[in-house]
């Protein structure tokens, strides 16, 4: 007998009565999604820049990336002199990239989590390997909590991630250090 059959058989022979799934009720969410979203991100060491026009977004991107030579983006309209995604042969080619600019599908107010499916990351490794991650989020996409967030994911990507802040660790005496393996800095441009 295969382990599969053995395991399934061991479970089935217990003859447990199936219990129904509970319904998840609708919970109240923040009345000011933008304020809550911003507070959540800032509490998690993310810089939030609020923009009201495309010009402001472009200016913010330019300001944030001024010091860098190596920038990659899936948003060429916002940053035109970045590394061409098509030239990246393997993900480790990105190891010296200083900044990545991507778009988030939507943001979650209660915890600042931004949904980034692989189509928006361009390359799966991108949001993790760059030193400074810049994510553009449209304020009209904001949802209140994680229940709304999961409802909003209609098509499940091969890979998708909720990003709530820069890479961090507290494994040495619980002292917080930003930039464990991934980004040491994260900026959200809210537009």
């Amino acid at each position: 007998m295969s382990s599969r059959e053995k395991m399934l058989g061991n479970i089935r022979k217990l003859g447990l009565e199936p219990k129904p799934l509970p319904e998840i009720p609708a919970f109240e969410v923040s009345k000011d999604l933008e304020a809550t979203f911003t507070t959540s991100l800032e509490a998690n060491h993310v810089t939030v820049i609020s923009c009201r026009s495309e010009e402001e977004v472009k200016a913010a991107v330019a300001e944030q990336t001024r010091a860098y030579q190596q920038v990659i983006t899936t948003l060429p309209d916002l940053y035109s002199s970045g590394i061409d995604l098509a030239t990246v042969k393997k993900p480790s080619d990105l190891r010296y990239v200083e900044a990545g600019i991507i778009k988030g599908a939507f943001g979650t107010a209660e915890n600042g989590a931004i949904w980034v499916p692989e189509s928006l990351a361009g390359i799966r490794a991108l949001p993790f390997i760059v030193v400074h991650l810049i994510v553009v989020v449209e304020r009209k996409t904001l949802v209140g909590n994680m229940h709304h967030a999961y409802k909003k994911i209609e098509e499940i990507p091969g890979f998708g991630v909720f990003i709530a802040g820069p890479s961090k660790t507290a494994d040495i005496e619980q002292s917080l250090v930003i930039g464990a393996h991934g980004p040491k800095k994260m900026t959200v441009i809210l537009c």
Binding site: N44, A113, F128, M146, K151, F162, A164, S167
Partner: peptide, 23 residues
């Protein structure tokens, strides 16, 4: 996941969610 991602990190360390929740 809406239920568990709200509970897990808050219970573990008090942060509202882990910085990376990868699917």
């Amino acid at each position: 996941l809406g239920v568990y991602t709200r509970l897990l990190a808050r219970s573990a360390t008090g942060q509202p969610i882990t910085n990376y929740t990868s699917h």
